[in-house]
């Protein structure tokens, strides 16, 4: 189990991680979600002992990373950036890593095959595409057959076949009882991959739960089509609902349940043709949860007159 305990990390004047606490349990795939610059990579780097926290701690089964006797056999990690010398072959990169933890050289061939890069094992890493680099990183993470696996933005640069392969791998690894912790800035990816999701923004913990838990925290809208949209909108406004016209006579209502919209229509004497509760998509939940904590928000580009 991974435990993050009141972690705080500051780089100069930037507060990258702010009093962050959460646990990641084995047997499930846990997504680590946040906008770019929200502190996901920093948190992972601290777990791996690469960066030192200003306050708090991270531990693996109760021990800090630096105290692990055989790190590669306990934690496997794929980091977001390059992590191999471009002039070294993939095989030699893995051999050097294996040697440091006294892992048999034969294991190198196994992980190369697992990652599907046996054919390019003797090529220099500098000639690899981003997808091949990701596969090499995944091979390195699997070297010690560890119980805890961490992947930072693993689908970046992978082709569709690679993405499917990695999703299936996560599932298999979690089913084997391992802790699988996967970061992404894409909610849609997490919805497909993760059982549980930890959401952070600007270094803060926002929420944690299953995909269903998270969608339930945000109220969806209600779509209603009625004979007199103007009268209905006025009736809804009286009940503190916000109605937005969307298409011929249709209204998108937020702040009220479908029952309340139906009752309002009945009281106003408006005939309802269609009444559908719209469940918030995970993407919308994510946007709403992290709206205040987007580090690099883009402005809308206005058309040039």
């Amino acid at each position: 189990m991974l435990a993050i305990d009141h972690l705080t990390k500051r780089y100069g004047s930037t507060l990258a991680v702010d009093d962050l606490s959460f646990d990641v349990r084995p047997g499930v795939v846990t997504g680590f979600l946040g906008p770019n610059g929200s502190g996901k990579s920093t948190t992972m780097r601290i777990i791996l002992g690469l960066d030192h926290p200003d306050k708090g701690s991270a531990s693996i089964d109760g021990r800090p990373f630096a105290e692990l006797g055989s790190p590669l056999r306990e934690v496997g990690a794929l980091l977001d950036a390059k992590a191999a010398h471009p002039g070294r072959s993939a095989r030699n990169h893995l051999r050097a890593l294996a040697a440091s933890n006294q892992i048999a050289a034969s294991r190198v061939d196994e992980v190369l095959a697992f990652a599907g890069i046996t054919a390019v094992a003797d090529k220099k890493v500098g000639q690899f595409s981003m997808g091949m680099c990701q596969r090499l990183g995944i091979a390195a993470a699997m070297l010690g057959d560890p119980a805890v696996l961490m992947f930072d933005e693993p689908v970046n640069g992978l082709d569709p076949e690679g993405i499917r392969w990695i999703r299936e791998s996560f599932r298999t690894l979690a089913d084997e009882g391992r802790t699988v912790f996967v970061s992404s800035h894409l909610m849609s990816e997490m919805a497909l991959t993760a059982d549980e999701i930890v959401v952070i923004g600007k270094g803060h913990f926002i929420t944690k739960g299953t995909v269903d838990d998270l969608t339930a925290t945000v109220h969806g809208t209600v779509f209603v089509r009625a004979s007199d949209p103007t009268a209905l909108a006025a009736a809804l406004a009286a009940r503190r609902g916000v109605a937005t016209p969307i298409n011929d006579g249709g209204l998108s209502v937020s702040g009220l349940t479908s029952d309340e919209v139906g009752e309002a229509a009945f009281a106003a004497g408006v005939t309802v043709y269609e009444l559908t509760p719209q469940r918030a998509s995970l993407e919308e939940v994510f946007m709403e949860l992290t709206a205040d904590s987007v580090e690099y928000g883009g402005a809308k580009l206005e058309p040039h007159a």
Partner: peptide
Amino acid sequence: TTEYSSGGIRSTLTAVPQ
């Protein structure tokens, strides 16, 4: 220095935190 320029240092130190 090439460990830093290539990012290999991250692999090195996650294998050997000492």
